[in-house]
Design a protein around this nucleic acid. Structure first.
Length: 212
DNA sequence: TTGGGAGAAATAGAAGGCGT
DNA sequence: ACGCCTTCTATTTCTCCCAA
């Protein structure tokens, strides 16, 4: 097989799929076999019911092949289970980050004011959704500047943990108490305007488009 | 954007292996 | 020996690349 393409620039249809790629097939196979056994059916019984060959069913149950959508639909009908139930047990790896109390990274965000302590609670790259989420624990001390001036792309959620603050969003002013939340378009000027009861701590999750 | 060629993968059916 | 399942081989279908 000739390969004139620079590596990584073109899709290679001849690429052999590695073991990890077979997770989905294996999960489908286990699911089919479990449902078949539950209904006291043999491979032959299921083959008759679906119109598939017993050999094909064997490969499907052993994760040795990727059945077509039509085949999966046929199987779900024959087993009297929802199509999606054949995908039970398959989970793609998802990013997760555990930050213990007191271990959050202290960061500086452009535009933050004196006395505003930002602790980044975790960060994972975009998971393909095209959305970035930044969770912060924010602490305001008596020395904090208090005029609202933040303005950035995306949407922000604030959840009050401690203290009381008058928080401005655009033309509106909201008094936030512990347990209150504020969900708003971050494109409007926003920020704490009056520190009523110190110390003030709140969680802030900022969501914005990856390419925004 | 579309159609054709090439190759990979899915599928069917037969043969073989294994346990009881 | 029989039932159940897997493996092997041939055929069909699907996907990708590339030229027009």
């Amino acid at each position: 097989m000739s390969d004139k393409s620079p590596p990584g620039l073109r899709q290679n249809p001849h690429r052999l799929r590695d073991r990890a790629d077979k997770n989905l097939e294996a999960a489908i196979g286990r699911s089919v076999r479990r449902h078949r056994k539950q209904q006291r059916m043999t491979v032959h019984d299921l083959a008759v019911k679906t119109g598939l060959s017993a050999g094909m069913l064997s490969k499907i149950e052993n994760g040795a092949t990727s059945p077509s959508l039509t085949t999966l639909q046929t199987l779900s009908h024959a087993l009297s289970v929802p199509l999606v139930s054949l995908f039970e047990g398959y989970a793609e790896p998802r990013g997760a980050m555990h930050v213990r109390a007191g271990e959050a990274a202290e960061v500086e965000r452009s535009g933050t004011r004196a006395g505003h302590q930002y602790n980044l609670l975790g960060h994972i790259g975009s998971n393909g959704s095209g959305v970035i989420v930044e969770p912060y624990l924010i602490t305001l001390s008596e020395h904090s500047d208090v005029f609202p001036a933040f303005q950035h792309d995306g949407i922000e959620l604030i959840y009050m943990l401690e203290g009381t603050v008058d928080y401005r969003h655009g033309e509106e002013l909201y008094r936030l108490l512990p347990g209150d939340s504020l969900f708003f378009d971050a494109d409007a000027p926003h920020g704490p305007e009056a520190l009523i009861d110190l110390p003030i701590r709140y969680l802030s999750a900022i969501c914005y488009p990856q390419n925004g």
